[in-house]
Computed example of a mutant assay.
Amino acid sequence: QLLCILPYEVALRRGYFAEEGLEVELVYARGGSQALQFLVGRAVDYAATSLDAALQAYQQGAPILRFCSTGRLPLFALAAAPKSPVKGLKDLEGKTVGISALGNADHVLLVYLLRKAGADPKRVQYATLGPNLYEALKAGHVEAGMVQEPALTLLKEAGGRELVNLMDLKQARAYLGGPYEFMGVAVRREERQGRLEEMRALSRALEKALRFLHAANARLIADTLPKALIAGGDEERLRAVIERYRKDLYPTGVRIDLEAARRVAESQVEAGLLPPSFRVESLLDLEVLGASG
């Protein structure tokens, strides 16, 4: 998902890491769980993942600390299939909704959305469709589904309907109560003190990248990405997606928004993935940079 990695690629390719005296290599993993396995196994020095992934790794015993944030919204929207009668969250009761997998971020978020809207998640059927979700939704095999971009745009062009777009800050405030912590950086807990100045330098570089994402035009941002990452894709559509979401998805600073992080933990508690007594502060290091909110 290119929208996840934009701040990191921008910081590297525009020289912001170098300005802070850092030599950085970006190593791509197959998802947040693998990235955190790399971190715990000492294959990398830091791991940039969603907070959802970090929470699960931490709950399973990973000795990690999360110290900065580069994303304040989840990269998901709930959309109805073409010709589906579904018009809102309450309409999903008794219907089948496509998700990537049970327990994944999109499933957890959907359950959280349903409960916030007063709908009963137990009355919804969940179809685990993995990478086939978009095609199944477009064909009407499910009534609705949790999608990302560019699938959301493509689905709307095919006659589908956007129900809730959590990549939109106004909608996130309306449906979730505010920002919902997403991408950020973790370090091995035992190395925190020895890496403290490096962590602050890394954070300063990423903050420069976030400000660039707010200030630059979408074409310049897209051109910052290495061609290998967008090979075979629709570059014009990518630029449109960046322009649509960049000021909502990315904060202008890297300090962790504690309330946004608490919403993610609350969603995992409600989905049964974390115990009711869990406190997200145990994973977060708010003293490296200070907390926002």
Rank of each mutant, 00 (worst) to 15 (best):
L92S: 06
L92R: 06
L92E: 03
L92F: 05
E93Y: 11
E93I: 13
G94M: 08
G94S: 06
G94F: 11
K95P: 05
K95I: 02
K95V: 06
T96M: 06
T96H: 05
T96P: 04
T96V: 08
V97D: 03
V97Y: 04
V97T: 09
G98R: 01
G98D: 02
I99M: 03
I99A: 04
I99Y: 03
S100N: 06
A101H: 08
A101G: 07
A101L: 10
L102F: 12
L102D: 09
L102V: 14
L102G: 15
G103L: 08
G103Y: 08
G103V: 12
G103W: 06
G103M: 06
N104W: 08
N104Q: 05
N104T: 01
A105V: 13
A105E: 15
D106S: 00
H107S: 11
H107E: 03
H107N: 15
H107L: 02
H107Q: 04
V108W: 00
V108L: 00
V108A: 02
L109Q: 07
L109G: 08
L110M: 02
L110S: 02
L110R: 01
L110C: 03
V111D: 10
V111K: 15
Y112N: 12
Y112F: 09
Y112L: 01
L113Y: 06
L113K: 07
L113G: 14
L113S: 13
L114A: 11
L114Y: 13
L114R: 09
L114N: 14
L114F: 11
R115Y: 03
R115W: 02
R115G: 04
K116H: 13
A117T: 10
A117V: 08
G118H: 14
G118K: 10
G118C: 13
G118L: 10
G118R: 14
A119I: 07
D120S: 13
P121Q: 08
P121H: 13
P121L: 14
K122N: 15
K122V: 12
K122L: 10
R123G: 04
R123M: 02
R123F: 00
R123H: 02
V124I: 01
V124M: 00
Q125P: 01
Q125Y: 07
Q125T: 14
Q125D: 05
Y126H: 06
Y126S: 04
A127Y: 10
A127G: 10
T128I: 03
L129V: 13
P131Y: 12
N132K: 09
N132P: 11
L133Q: 05
L133D: 06
L133C: 05
Y134L: 00
Y134P: 01
Y134S: 00
E135L: 11
E135D: 12
E135N: 14
A136K: 13
A136I: 01
L137G: 04
L137V: 03
L137S: 02
K138F: 05
K138G: 06
K138V: 11
A139L: 05
G140A: 15
G140C: 13
G140W: 11
G140M: 11
H141F: 05
H141V: 04
H141M: 07
V142P: 08
V142S: 04
V142F: 02
V142G: 07
E143N: 06
E143P: 05
E143K: 07
